[in-house]
Nucleic acid binder design. Structure first.
Lengths: 237, 237
DNA sequence: GTCTATATAACGATAGAC
DNA sequence: GTCTATCGTTATATAGAC
């Protein structure tokens, strides 16, 4: 196993809040009343950062729009020219990270790599993205239940989609004989659970001075150990 | 590996909501204004069940005391003779399952078993208890952040305590040579994450008709595969 | 574009009748 | 023990001045 490492990953994805908000603005142009891009992006960044910060402490429902107004340094009236209800703000926040996450996963997982290599790429991409956008990932997980039924369905679909990436990799590894025969669905499910633990319990890993690379290395080691065919790589390649 | 199985487990713990609420009443006698045990227990069961049901849908913060009054078939006034504030209700709910959980873990993990056996006992106990008290486990996880700082600290302590049970088992298995050398803290952490996934995403496993025994078998298989010393049991050293 | 001020609804909590 | 009625507070959302 050969890890890309967190720093190399960060350089290659070039994440910035401003770029993310500009993308967001371009997609949701009609819902936002502000006409000047520069103003809109600047305030969107402040709104999103503040909302994620407050929500991570006490949850989105318990955050009042007044709280948000204070934290983002914008008046009530100003806020309501970026969204028309608190519920809409919730859905804006949710959709924020989805686009960038999907793009990164598509970029970082190389279809012509071996299953074992793609497994490492996928695990690193998931973990490192969750490290970069930790507040969003936490929010996305904890607030899913507050979405409307329809949006909730989409959120579940999304979880199953990223899990499906792992299922696909495991299946193809089993076909080439690189991996031994396991239950691909359950394996992907518990792998996902491990990856999510990284951003769900930051207090745990921070307190133990475990870095995200340490964690990635451990998870990859465990999964490889579980999947590796003891008879060695039996074919194709 | 030899599993006890869910039904055998259920028989041996003899869980009942009424018993749990009676225990609770005996511990918190001074905070509850109702004098007749029978009435108090009956209503406590209704309050707790209703509160967990509503909270699991939209979270505790979003649940109004009026919602609770409707669902539990008790008036506002009646509710407030069982707790003196919504926040106190939150802490009552949190403490509910802790006692019974701790008792069960102590009963089910036999100190004179081998590390491998104790590992199976601990995993089964955790999973099966979370299946029996699923609404409470979900609540306990999702609402921890709404507790007061002091109570939050205790919640983290509790998480680390149950995780510590696994750490202890892994360490002793490494000492006897039954297990190979791994990072006990990280192993226990990801194991915990796997166990929690069972009650955090019921929609996933229910939809796939995976039973809790299936899940237990899979997790135990994976962890044993990870821990098992390839050289076999090399004795005490 | 952003502000202050306010309308309107819902909230948690309590007092007092039964 | 439980209910109904109601208090004071806080919430979301908007209107109109700047």
């Amino acid at each position: 196993m050969e890890l890309k490492g967190f720093n190399a990953f960060k350089d290659s994805v070039q994440f910035s809040s401003e770029q993310t908000c500009l993308d967001f603005l371009n997609v949701n142009r009609e819902q936002i009343r502000i006409k000047k891009d520069e103003t809109a992006v600047r305030n969107l960044v402040r709104i999103f950062d503040a909302a994620l910060a407050i929500s991570s402490g006490k949850g989105f429902q318990a955050m009042s729009v007044r709280d948000l107004s204070r934290e983002a340094n914008l008046s009530m009236g100003a806020l309501y020219s970026y969204f028309k209800s608190k519920e809409e703000l919730l859905e804006m926040l949710r959709s924020l990270g989805c686009r960038v996450l999907e793009r990164v996963l598509a970029d970082e997982i190389k279809p012509d790599s071996s299953p074992a290599e793609r497994l490492v790429q996928a695990i690193e991409a998931h973990l490192y993205m969750s490290e970069i956008m930790k507040p969003w990932f936490y929010f996305n997980y904890m607030e899913a239940k507050n979405l409307r039924k329809e949006e909730q369905r989409k959120a579940i679909e999304r979880e199953l989609y990223t899990e499906g990436i792992f299922v696909g990799i495991i299946r193809s590894g089993m076909e080439t004989g690189e991996f031994r025969t396991v239950d691909p669905l359950l394996t992907a499910a518990v792998l996902k659970a491990m990856l999510q633990d990284w951003y769900l319990k930051p207090w745990k890993y921070q307190g133990r001075t475990v870095t995200v690379e340490d964690y990635a290395g451990f998870v990859i080691g465990m999964v490889e150990h579980f999947l590796k065919n003891p008879e060695g790589q039996t074919a194709i390649r």
